[in-house]
Amino acid sequence: MITDTPAPVQNRPVATKGRVYRPNQRHIPVLATLALLALMYGLGVANYEGFSDTQVLLNIFVDNAFLLVVAVGMTFVILTGGIDLSVGAVVALTTVVAATLLGKDWPPGVVLPLVLLIGTTIGLAMGCIIHFFEIPPFIATLAGMFLARGLCHLISKEAIPITDGFWTSMAQERLRFGGFFISLSVVIAVVVVLIAAFVLAYTRIGRNVYAIGGNAQSALLMGLPVGRTRISVYAISGFCSALGGVLLSFYMLSGDPLHAQGLELDAIAAVVIGGTLLSGGSGFLFGTVLGVLVLGLIQTIITFQGTLSSWWTRIVIGGLLFAFVLLQRLVTRRAR
């Protein structure tokens, strides 16, 4: 099997009937998302006045920082072949708990770690249930979702405004450069993305996540800590949801049991559009970033259009999701 690719890496003789060289086969879904993003952006710039302003792009980050953080956690879970339906409810719970405690004059230095701990604990508990009792992730996290959402309503029936000084300053602080600005939340989200990308690519736990998604049975036989890893990803997702909730409460300056309805589905959509296989084992964090940007860009275009109902966002996301799942199926089938 000699390929006619002139790439120097390939000039070693391949000893057996081996692989047919395909450039970056694993990157195809991510590249497709990138192309889609460029196309949508081009369409926006061509059709709407003022769309080319860089601030429009930056606003997508500002408006979706919390979603990005939540989607990072979701990427870990989906890479193992699992799913986490509780993220939206955990986000809401985080805003409600934070708003309530801050309303009782608890110091932000206590509230912040506490809500992060609560989110992580919920994730950890769901991970343990999934692993030790062999409950399908869909069911376990569905239960977690109802539980967290129910707790929100138990704590407060309506929205609670946040007036705490630290929170309002975080909400209003802008990093300005050359006439443009981003919020602090964007900085936090980017840091989270960078750390997560490093963990997935360069640490054992990250590679174990991929191994479990590829074939959990094999991973077990190869002696990998399957249980520990599986529990960890749900704890990570719980932490990311709580952090996302904190960012959302910066953004909204309120805690509301009705916040983040259906956010889990947005997060899953972003991960899938970003090219991560729902069956696990394949995908990149960078893809998830692109997926979030695609969702944000759709919203922006619809805002610019002005005449369309916001439900068009949902319809377009639905169509895209369908297209990407089909694309993934095609790619994985060709890989066999």
């Binding site: 590679r207 074939n215 991973a219 190869m222």
Partner: peptide, 24 residues
Amino acid sequence: NLCPNLSVAENIFIGREPRRFGKI
């Protein structure tokens, strides 16, 4: 009993990857 989605090198070394300060 290996993971088809991982690279050949990883399949040989996963769980025992050579590391430096925790970085593979």
